[in-house]
């Protein structure tokens, strides 16, 4: 065995890379300082200094919650749950075919149909459900129906996107095997693809339902029904103890729905 002529030294980064990393951090620091200055340009510092006093005052007025108000909220809460559930159902029904049109391995045409399906997904996802509700209240008038459709339209993109990704990940040889028996396109989807995506599909649906419960609590702000309607009217008359109660009710609902959704998805996986 010959001795090594010189000890080999290993550097995690080359000199050039080290300088680039240092320069990068320096640039981020400068950017942070600049942004902070821009942000605080219009701040009236007197109000900021006053904030703790104001906050204490508001909290003082908000407590205790007006518990007697709760009997009016049951119906609104029920509406909210219905908006979320029916909206999810509508969204899922519409998303199902869209997902198959968007997935590379099931779309009838990668050139024509797939881009349209992707556009549907993108437009549904890019518009917040509050905006959908605002538009629909204008068209349909205020009420639960506008809320249901707003939630439904908003859900299409989310459900279709996650679903088409799981369609693209199915085991290809099972699909090949079903095709090789002489099965038609729809039979192949029915026998080879749907059984494979079913757990993901149910998981996505429950997950979206849980998100929709949260989203539907605020739809009332623009007149689309549910508990948000009460929140908005209480805010308008500065009835702070009622606002507190409503927020607590929303919090409880969301916690319960998240718990349910987590449990169900645990069972599926």
């Amino acid at each position: 065995m010959g001795e090594l002529e010189q000890k080999l030294v290993w550097h995690g980064r080359t000199k050039r890379k080290a300088w680039m990393v240092w320069g990068g951090w320096f640039a981020i620091t400068l950017l942070t300082i600049y942004c902070w200055m821009e942000m605080t340009e219009d701040t009236i510092w007197f109000f900021v200094l006053d904030a703790p006093v104001q906050a204490a005052d508001l909290i003082d007025r908000m407590f205790p919650p007006e518990w007697s108000y709760i009997h009016l909220l049951y119906k609104a809460l029920w509406d909210t749950l219905n908006i979320a559930t029916l909206g999810t159902l509508l969204g899922v029904i519409l998303a199902f075919p869209v997902a198959f049109l968007a997935a590379r391995n099931t779309t009838p045409s990668v050139v024509f149909v797939r881009p349209i399906a992707l556009l549907i997904i993108a437009s549904s996802r890019s518009i917040n459900s509050l905006i959908w509700a605002l538009l629909l209240v204008t068209i349909l008038g205020p009420g639960i129906l506008a809320g249901v459709i707003a939630i439904g339209l908003r859900s299409i993109g989310f459900v279709a996107k996650l679903l088409y990704e799981s369609i693209e990940e199915v085991n290809g040889t099972s699909v090949e095997a079903i095709e090789s028996t002489g099965a038609s396109r729809f039979q192949t989807i029915n026998y080879a693809i749907i059984p494979q995506i079913l757990p993901a599909f149910l998981g996505i649906t429950i997950f979206r339902w849980d998100i929709n419960i949260r989203e539907s609590t605020i739809l009332g702000l623009v007149g689309a029904g549910g508990i948000g309607l009460f929140l908005s009217s209480s805010l308008n008359v500065l009835a702070w103890p009622q606002v507190t109660l409503i927020i607590l009710v929303i919090l409880a609902t969301v916690v319960v729905s998240e718990f349910l959704s987590a449990k169900v998805r645990e069972l599926l996986i």
């Binding site: 085991n171 040889t173 099972s174 090949e176 095709e179 028996t181 002489g182 059984p195 494979q196 079913l198």
Partner: peptide, 17 residues
């Protein structure tokens, strides 16, 4: 294809059926 049976390396069954 109906008249041609195929058998695969990784069995290629639909496992959830």
């Amino acid at each position: 294809r109906r008249h041609i049976g195929m058998i695969f390396q990784e069995y290629a069954l639909v496992e959830r059926l």
